[in-house]
């Protein structure tokens, strides 16, 4: 009976998955959904004969949880964000790319060749990057928007009309920039001040919402909303009065990266895939599709010209510095987790 079920299910799985095992090579990618154009995957298969299978996740943390629950060893590459690369490296989930293994490693632009989250690019290559800040509806507020005060100490007319991303990392990083403190502080007075500031600011917020961060701005439910730059551009195209802010205190920068996973079943294919994505033309196709920045030299000519002029992707000279979300040690992180729980209890 059991065998029968298993056999019929296997037959069904084969029929449904419709992936032939006859290909020259295979590659299993763990990726966000709709974050790579299908044309590009087809091109990769055409060039290398490698069949690509894709699995998808909806957050960096969900991917980590799944890998730690035993899924490591079934995927070749994944696409974690910056801080997640260093967490995964720390957890021993990443394989090291040896010197000279990647033919196109030299294509990585100097800005991204030695990032803090993966010094020397031992495990990863750049995929897409962008920023996280907030948008303000200039139709309902005419003052200066380039300050984190808009989020944490808003003028009266914006109070109660603010949506925050429901993401601890991004909210805490912005809060640290607002107070001018480090992201992984161990200074008790500063941490208490951070906790108190957030409690106070919460009274001004309407909601925490990531999934419909764009929609609440466009619909006018809120006048201020934390948002990623790419979503900001989409929101502006739907409502012209929305303006993306680059606070003078600074803003959050993020970068998604293709990493080589430990125990990758098709390591050679993974290296070929990474080399493929380091070709300027190919990664430009990703940017044209996903509307985010890339980290490879010589891609300019393949890029949609509109990308170069997007106000959301091109910070003005007076903008503060962009910072990555930092990874704290366990004891420090425990305090930040507690502050976050306090904020949402």
């Amino acid at each position: 009976m059991k065998h029968m079920i298993k056999a019929s299910a296997t037959a069904m799985a084969l029929a449904l998955a419709a992936t032939g095992a006859s290909a020259e090579g295979k590659l299993v990618v763990y990726h966000w959904f709709e974050y790579i154009p299908q044309d590009l995957l087809d091109k990769f298969t055409a060039e290398t004969g490698i069949e690509v299978t894709m699995d998808t996740y909806d957050s960096n943390e969900a991917m980590l949880a799944s890998l730690k629950a035993g899924a490591i060893g079934t995927y070749d590459v994944a696409v974690p964000g910056d801080y997640m690369v260093s967490i995964m490296a720390g957890e021993g989930l990443l394989d090291t790319i040896a010197d000279g293994e990647l033919a196109n490693k030299g294509n990585i632009s100097s800005d991204w060749a030695d990032p803090s989250f993966d010094p020397g690019r031992m495990h990863s290559i750049p995929y897409q990057w962008g920023s996280t800040a907030f948008m303000v509806d200039t139709a309902s507020y005419s003052g200066d928007i380039n300050s984190t005060d808009i989020l944490f100490n808003p003028p009266a007319e914006l109070s109660g009309k603010i949506n925050m991303l429901d993401s601890q990392g991004e909210v805490m990083a912005m809060a640290a920039l607002h107070l001018g403190m480090e992201q992984c502080s161990t200074d008790r007075d500063k941490l208490k001040a951070l906790n108190a500031m957030l409690q106070e600011a919460k009274g001004h917020w309407a909601s925490f919402n990531s999934d419909t961060a764009k929609e609440v701005l466009v619909s006018g439910d809120v006048s201020v909303g934390m948002i990623y730059d790419g979503f900001g551009a989409k929101a502006r195209s739907e409502k012209a009065s929305l303006k993306y802010a680059f606070p003078s205190q600074g803003y959050v920068v993020w970068m998604d990266n293709v990493v080589l996973l430990k125990d990758a079943p098709n390591r050679d294919s993974a290296i070929k895939f990474m080399d493929f994505l380091l070709e300027p033309e190919n990664i430009a196709a990703v940017s044209n599709y996903a509307r985010y920045g890339l980290g490879v030299n010589g891609a300019g000519e393949f890029l949609d010209p509109e990308l170069a002029t997007l106000p959301e992707s091109n910070p003005p000279a007076e903008a503060g510095a962009g910072v990555f979300i930092e990874v704290c040690d366990e004891a420090t992180q425990a305090v930040y987790d507690k502050i976050w729980t306090n904020l949402k209890k």
Partner: peptide, 24 residues
């Protein structure tokens, strides 16, 4: 589903939640 599915197997909910990255 999101946790127990294997590579290459999507269902409608996982596809829809996953595409939130690019907006609904």
């Amino acid at each position: 589903t999101n946790f127990v599915k294997g590579a290459g197997v999507e269902t409608l909910p996982t596809a829809i939640f996953g595409s939130v990255k690019q907006g609904i």
